[in-house]
Design a protein around this nucleic acid. Sequence first.
DNA 1: TGTGAATGTAAAACATGTTTGACAAGGAGG
DNA 2: CCTCCTTGTCAAACATGTTTTACATTCACA
Lengths: 67, 67
Amino acid sequence: MRNSIAVRRKQRQLSQAEVAVLTNVTRQTINAIENDKYDPSLTLAFELAACLGTTVDELFDFRGKRE
Amino acid sequence: MRNSIAVRRKQRQLSQAEVAVLTNVTRQTINAIENDKYDPSLTLAFELAACLGTTVDELFDFRGKRE
DNA sequence: TGTGAATGTAAAACATGTTTGACAAGGAGG
DNA sequence: CCTCCTTGTCAAACATGTTTTACATTCACA
């Protein structure tokens, strides 16, 4: 699922590694999610939203997603 | 993570089985999530919110959750 | 009574998310 | 040039979410 993590992260001048620490996951996890390798867990989604000063609904772009 | 799925589901007079069909998962999955056995995936969280006419942020009760 | 609808639960298999450790490449600045 | 920081990536192990099959309980109601 697409998201605006990279954009918002850069606006706040944070590295992937810093966001990782703030959200209690590894840098690889943040990198994978920014590059759409997989979706975060619901908990991580909430932590990311909090960390980037937004909401889950705004941070992630859910499109009915019929594949 | 706590949520208001059961309440909102009943307001709409839907059974767990009906919500399951609407969100493309099994009845057991809906039951487990309502009873806090585990958290849904981010995708399922969005589908549940859509199905129940609300948002992910309103449907789930995220509390910084330090355990 | 008894039948069907709704819910709770459980184990095994399977799918997806996360960590660990490691390596490569680009840019900024000494 | 050298070094550090940042980002991308990969494979194996591990953790969590989901399905399948199956059974038990309760409630409403014929």
